[in-house]
Amino acid sequence: MRPFAYRRATDARAAVAALSEQPNAMYLGGGTNLVDLMRLGVIAPEALVDVTRVASDTVEETAGGGLLIGAGVRNSDLAAHPVVRRRYPMLAQAVLSGASGQIRNMATVGGNLLQRTRCSYFQDVSKPCNKRQPGSGCPAVEGDHRNLAIIGHSAACVATHPSDMAVALAALGTSVHVEGRHGARQVTMPGLHRLPGGEPDRDTVLDPGDLITAVELPALPFAARSRYRKVRDRASFAFAVVSVAAALDVAGGVVRDCRIAFGGLAHVPWRAELAEEALRGSPATEAEFARAADAELARARPLPENGFKVPLTRNVLVRTLTELAETP
């Protein structure tokens, strides 16, 4: 690991200023991904600005009925929060589906959103990777891509976004609060992350020096009936092969509204807008759920080794929605 300077920021503006002063500096949150990537040689910052003590480790109810979650809130505290568990169960389940107890105690909300793909080529500096080294190529397209993207990918990059939490946040339409060099602004998910296109080195729409300070969940009463379901290669402590975050509002057997997002399928937490559109106003039946899944997955372009994800995603969505519809 290369030597680096360490500074501790106590407020967001000071953190942004500190990052502006130092070339090739990065923010340090829980460090669960960053420290590993530094050890692997994937990144080599000259300075780390520790933002874990920036005053943002609180969860507050907003006047509009939503929830404002500080970027420094640890994943475990978010999942254990009584209001999150009661009003946004899919968010608690998504967070608890990720990593391990130790990692969740360390990882922050802001860092979780900005973690990097676990594509093995990205993490192996002896291999080409357009995300790590633009223009070097993507061995995954013809190599090991069983667990990589089936939708929204490009010839340059077929990586997936690894976060579970982000899938629930994308489904909820969460607003991400950002402090940057030109002041504060908000970015609404799923718009925080970007598809790879020709610039897979850019995971998000954030600019250099931008600091996530909070995420704001909208008031969404029907999210009390929501669920996160994750399919993985072992029972626990593994990244998603496919995951679904879904909230369902059913009245008189008809879907009034819904929120659906997928994990493990794309470079971004994938908000299934076509499936949502197909479902609104439809009977809450298994046949309609399958029709909605097909509407979304018609856009899938699986690679030779990951075509199984298409029917798997369809089945996981249908099962999840069916369970939600049957929940009293």
Binding site: T32, V35, Q102
Partner: peptide, 25 residues
């Protein structure tokens, strides 16, 4: 790499992976 748990210790009573925790923090 934070995957095996053999390095687990408690920081302020919470379990963490000491291999991913920078001492300076």
């Amino acid at each position: 790499h934070g995957q095996c748990g053999a390095c687990t210790v408690l920081v302020d009573g919470r379990r963490v992976k000491s291999c991913l925790t920078l001492t300076v923090t």
